Amino acid sequence: MHSPEPARARISVIGAGPGGLACARILQRHGLAVTVHERDPGPDARDQGGTLDLHADNGQIALREAGLLDEFFELARPEGQEMRQMDPAGRIVAHQVPEAGELFKPEIDRGRLRDLLLDSLLPGTVHWGRALDKVGGPADGPRQLHFADGTTVEADLVIGADGAFSRVRRAVSSAVPEYTGVSFLEAWFSDVENRHPEIAELVGPGSAAAADGDRGLFAQRNGGGHIRVYVIRRVPADWTTVSGLDADDTDGIRALVLDEYAHWSPRMRRMITDNEGRYVDRPIFALPVPHAWEHHPTVTLLGDAAHLMPPLGVGVNLAMLDAAELALALAHAATVDDAVRTYEKTMLARSTDTARALEGGAEHLLAADIPDFDAQPQG
């Protein structure tokens, strides 16, 4: 099949995360039609996660191409760039405070970023409740998208922006994410200035981290008076089952973790004991390095679907840069095939270099050394 002109192509994005939505927004700004399919039943179906720092040299580039950079700055929190490194006693051992007017990597809650991108799209762009089962059809197209509800959609280009366990990835690659050996246990705190003033003071307006070589804590200020804390541990992926616990046994999990952090100060242990509601287990996975695939003119990947790495502040930034470069390639290429080749040539080289630099990086989150403040967890 001859590859169509992008202006005549049926383009389907799978996944309504920041990368997929940014790609759709930039395509629409250049007059290209696109449909986004998202498995969630609606935009408010679930919590969108913590806070993100969008960097001037990647994430903000995508927002500029999307025509949303000024609106982003209105919503972002520049003060969130402050970072504190502590020891297990709660003493600050390193402190980075942004200069006045610093906007290199301001923070924004995932939910607010998603709403910004959703509101910028043409009505009806996102089709909710569309869980992809598989991508069928010949490699040169057209492709068939088979959804869990039994429906099928035909597409000339399928863009996999569907995250770590991407269904689209299976159409071009046999690679699967591997457990890194490190897991995050997420705890939430709300109205922190009134309900958790000691934790609010400890964390400050941005982020605070501590580690002892075997375990760590990472706390992030979110918007609306919220803080999320990530308890970072080297454990089996099924550690709750091995310990005879389940995800809803909050008291049992708390007791187990408190025992592991017994030598940490009571001040620091408040970030384990005082959480509101249940913990959320987040084992950290990564794709093998390097991850590449044989070119297909009708399927490509961006973000975690293409290059899942440890959460060290690059994931969403790379996903949005991928989105911008792919959308711009489609806007300026003669055929969809040409655009995909152009995009993948740059993206695969960049992601391979970054993935190699971050390989094993989840272990760095447990190191007691003075940190590289540019390599911190991303919520």
Rank of each mutant, 00 (worst) to 15 (best):
G31R: 11
R195P: 04
A45P: 08
G277F: 10
G163F: 01
D259Y: 02
N58A: 01
E71A: 15
V168A: 06
S265I: 03
S166D: 02
M320V: 00
E107V: 09
L157W: 05
D274Q: 13
V336H: 07
A292F: 08
I159A: 01
L366N: 14
A131F: 03
R64H: 11
P236H: 09
P288D: 11
T151H: 09
H55L: 08
A262R: 15
H307L: 07
E154M: 14
L145K: 03
T346A: 15
P297H: 05
R282W: 01
A255Q: 05
A89Y: 12
R282Q: 03
F373L: 06
A319R: 01
R234N: 13
M320W: 01
D87L: 11
W128V: 02
E363S: 07
S120I: 06
E325K: 14
A66F: 00
E5G: 10
D191P: 00
M320Q: 04
L54F: 04
L318Q: 14
A329H: 05
A171R: 06
D214H: 15
G137R: 04
D338W: 04
P142N: 10
R341N: 00
G31K: 10
L318E: 10
R267N: 09
I159M: 01
V289F: 10
S243G: 12
P43M: 08
G124L: 01
L256S: 08
L103G: 03
H295C: 08
P377G: 12
R110C: 02
D274G: 08
G124R: 00
G216L: 08
A319N: 02
F189L: 15
Q376E: 13
G360Q: 07
H127P: 00
I370P: 04
A56K: 07
L185Q: 14
D248G: 12
L217Q: 08
P371R: 14
A334P: 01
D70G: 11
P138K: 08
L157P: 09
P98C: 13
W188S: 14
E107I: 05
M347Q: 06
P371M: 11
V153R: 06
